[in-house]
Amino acid sequence: MATSVWRALGIDKENWVGKLIAVEEYHGSNGNFVLNCLIAERIHKDGAVCLVALHNSFGHYHNVGTKLGYNLHQLQEKGYVENIEVMKLLSGSLNSALEDGTENFLFGKEENAVRNLFYLIEEKIKKLVQQRRPVSLVIDDLSDLLSLGIPVKEVLSFLQYCRSLLESQPDLSLVVLTHVAEGDEEQHLLSAGLCHVADITVTVSGLKTGQSTDVSGAMKVIHRRWDQPVIADEWNKQNLYHFKLLDRQVKVFAPGTASSLM
């Protein structure tokens, strides 16, 4: 299951409601398993999830969820899950624009695009908070807004809008994945901005030594404690792990111990 990821992030011992977890995915790796494990944790604790799917589809998350022990379609029908598939909304907006010449949703000015998306998210979150507690807002993947032609400045503004929900909705937590490609300055700026405001940063990358049959990649976890005095030994709790992605579970372990776990 996902328990080894929960332990690595420390959320098995510490409540992550009210916190922002940033998942920084470097090119050549896939950090989506972290999002799936966090969704599983929230669902298994009788919470709710608002999924903003910019990269992977809702069907993808449903398929992974069945392997982790839950059914997203059934949970959506019961009011535990709200879903925003941005690409489907874009398609509908484009068709509307072509038919009647109107600007809709993400079309038009960039600042209006991110503001409209945020208002939609806010509406879904308020609906979930009224029915279920706690709630996790999961965004996959923030850097895809850059691919849609939205400037990094506006994407960072969108991030700040979403982070402001943590103040207005005390039962909310926020999970944001962003992709980072080597040489892409905008993606690096976006990732730096996200990690700067995160309570927990999870960096997923490939192995520096190349591929391995026993190890899928590396995962670095940094905790920042904003509510405590700055103490050299406690300001950053940094842990480096290796992980192995299997069909129905994820194994997380200390570097060099893979052979003893397989």
Results as ranks from 00 to 15, higher is better:
residue 160 Q to M: 04
residue 31 G to S: 11
residue 80 Y to K: 15
residue 247 D to P: 00
residue 130 Q to P: 00
residue 232 A to D: 12
residue 167 E to S: 15
residue 76 Q to G: 03
residue 117 L to E: 02
residue 204 V to G: 04
residue 122 E to C: 13
residue 120 L to G: 00
residue 133 R to C: 08
residue 75 L to I: 05
residue 151 P to C: 03
residue 40 A to M: 01
residue 261 L to Y: 06
residue 7 R to H: 12
residue 82 E to N: 06
residue 11 I to C: 11
residue 129 V to F: 04
residue 16 W to Q: 02
residue 155 V to N: 05
residue 40 A to L: 00
residue 235 W to T: 15
residue 136 S to I: 11
residue 95 N to H: 05
residue 178 T to N: 13
residue 45 K to D: 09
residue 120 L to H: 07
residue 33 F to K: 01
residue 189 L to A: 13
residue 131 Q to P: 00
residue 109 K to D: 10
residue 260 S to F: 09
residue 193 G to F: 08
residue 169 Q to K: 03
residue 153 K to L: 08
residue 26 Y to Q: 15
residue 209 T to F: 07
residue 216 S to Y: 07
residue 194 L to H: 13
residue 239 N to A: 11
residue 179 H to N: 13
residue 180 V to Y: 01
residue 56 N to Y: 05
residue 46 D to W: 02
residue 3 T to H: 10
residue 230 V to L: 14
residue 79 G to P: 00
residue 248 R to M: 07
residue 206 G to M: 06
residue 240 L to R: 11
residue 145 L to I: 05
residue 196 H to K: 14
residue 12 D to G: 12
residue 187 Q to Y: 01
residue 75 L to A: 06
residue 206 G to E: 05
residue 24 E to G: 04
residue 40 A to C: 07
residue 86 V to C: 00
residue 208 K to R: 13
residue 9 L to W: 01
residue 262 M to S: 09
residue 181 A to R: 11
residue 16 W to G: 00
residue 179 H to A: 12
residue 33 F to V: 01
residue 44 H to A: 09
residue 135 V to W: 00
residue 120 L to R: 15
residue 30 N to G: 10
residue 131 Q to A: 10
residue 38 L to V: 09
residue 187 Q to H: 03
residue 56 N to T: 02
residue 54 L to V: 00
residue 22 A to M: 11
residue 116 N to T: 12
residue 173 S to N: 10
residue 217 G to A: 09
residue 145 L to Q: 08
residue 168 S to Y: 00
residue 237 K to M: 10
residue 177 L to I: 14
residue 260 S to I: 06
residue 35 L to Q: 08
residue 114 V to D: 04
residue 129 V to T: 15
residue 31 G to Y: 01
residue 189 L to E: 05
residue 156 L to G: 12
residue 230 V to N: 10
residue 210 G to I: 07
residue 200 I to A: 07
residue 154 E to Y: 12
residue 83 N to Y: 03
residue 212 S to D: 12
residue 92 G to Q: 10
residue 118 F to Q: 04
residue 49 V to R: 03
residue 182 E to G: 08
residue 170 P to C: 07
residue 231 I to F: 07
residue 14 E to Q: 06
residue 164 S to Q: 06
residue 166 L to G: 04
residue 117 L to H: 02
residue 41 E to C: 02
residue 125 I to R: 04
residue 222 I to E: 13
residue 233 D to I: 07
residue 44 H to V: 03
residue 2 A to K: 04
residue 70 Y to S: 06
residue 190 L to Y: 11
residue 108 G to K: 08
residue 61 Y to V: 02
residue 135 V to D: 11
residue 47 G to S: 04
residue 211 Q to P: 09
residue 219 M to Y: 08
residue 153 K to I: 09
residue 171 D to S: 10
residue 94 L to M: 10
residue 144 D to E: 14
residue 82 E to F: 01
residue 34 V to N: 02
residue 89 L to Y: 02
residue 83 N to W: 02
residue 97 A to F: 13
residue 105 F to M: 13
residue 38 L to C: 06
residue 175 V to W: 03
residue 144 D to H: 12
residue 159 L to F: 12
residue 186 E to R: 13
residue 83 N to G: 02
residue 93 S to T: 11
residue 213 T to Q: 11
residue 112 N to S: 15
residue 191 S to I: 06
residue 51 L to S: 04
residue 242 H to M: 05
residue 103 E to Q: 14
residue 50 C to G: 10
residue 106 L to R: 05
residue 244 K to R: 15
residue 57 S to H: 09
residue 81 V to R: 03
residue 87 M to R: 04
residue 45 K to T: 15
